[in-house]
Design a binder for these strands. Structure first.
Length: 268
DNA sequence: CGCATTTCCTGGTAGC
DNA sequence: TGCTACCAGGAAATGC
């Protein structure tokens, strides 16, 4: 479940390696057919100019005017040595090789003309970057939630009010802001919304500092696990006492996702 | 357009 | 042990 902190951790490792490298050959290996690996071969011969991140997407700007878009999905990993199985794509560089391993095939690894995100609607409509205070303002957050009748959990997960927050960090942020996951997104008051905004920023920042969260599959390029798993206060804690009010944390399903919250101190 | 539902995919595990 | 059934979930596709 790589979310923003996990993806940012990987991006930083790649940033120390890839810029300036030329892609000698880009190819699919055991990759699914269809759009997830579209035009990957077009990266061949292009130099990697820069690496950025938008939400959970890693973007490599290429010298030929293209962008290589990487999404880790659920189980995507980057390796510098060939993994024994589940290699979906491979970039042969002028120095070294990058392997994309993805057991469950939810990841993406494709080439588009720079900025042409028509085939990636989530990226095209992505919300503000939470770790950029100029971008993720209360006004923008509120504007992107205004009028939405769905649950705050579903709204955050849609990537449109804010970029990069998935299941784990939605639950953690709602717990910290004391907001019920089923609260109607468009009806949360400005004061509470600002608490949620602050919680998202604080939690994501703290998780980046810890190298992200590893539940099972997530690994950094160096092969390390993420230590933020030890700081989780709601996610996965069903039956355990709430660290704030001592009531028992419950697991329900909201927006088709496992959702952990405290029925004592999280209010609609 | 918004929103809910379904689909993709496979390793791990619960239950028998 | 060996089998079946089910679960995890980010994004896209589909249906209304």
């Amino acid at each position: 479940m790589p979310e923003l902190p996990e993806v940012e951790t990987v991006r930083r490792e790649l940033d120390a390696w890839l810029p300036g490298r030329t892609i000698v050959a880009a190819r699919r290996e055991d990759a699914p057919k269809g759009p997830k690996y579209r035009d990957l071969e077009r990266a061949t011969g292009q130099r990697i100019e820069a690496l950025t991140r938008r939400g959970k997407f890693i973007l490599l700007s290429l010298s030929g005017g293209d962008e290589l878009v990487i999404h880790l999905g659920m189980t995507g990993q980057i390796h510098r040595a060939r993994p024994v199985a589940h290699v979906r794509a491979c970039l042969e560089l002028d120095r070294g090789v990058l392997f994309f391993r993805d057991v469950r095939r939810f990841g993406r690894f494709l080439v588009v003309p720079a900025g042409a995100y028509g085939v990636l609607p989530t990226l095209a409509h992505l919300g503000p970057e939470p770790l950029d205070p100029q971008d993720f303002t209360l006004d923008r957050f509120a504007a992107r939630l205004r009028g939405r009748k769905t649950s705050i959990k579903a709204a955050i997960m849609s990537q449109r009010p804010v970029a990069g927050v998935g299941n784990i960090y939605t639950d953690e942020s709602l717990w910290q802001a004391q907001i019920h996951p089923r609260a109607e997104a468009g009806r949360i008051g400005r004061r509470r919304l600002d608490r949620l905004r602050g919680a998202i920023v604080e939690i994501l920042g703290r998780s980046v500092a810890a190298g992200g969260t590893t539940l099972r599959d997530y690994r950094t390029v160096a092969g390390d696990t993420g230590a933020f798993v030890h700081q989780l206060q709601a996610y996965g804690r069903e039956g355990a006492p709430c660290m704030r009010c001592d009531r028992v944390i419950r697991r329900v399903v909201v927006a088709q996702r496992g959702t952990w919250f405290c029925p004592g101190c999280q209010r609609k």
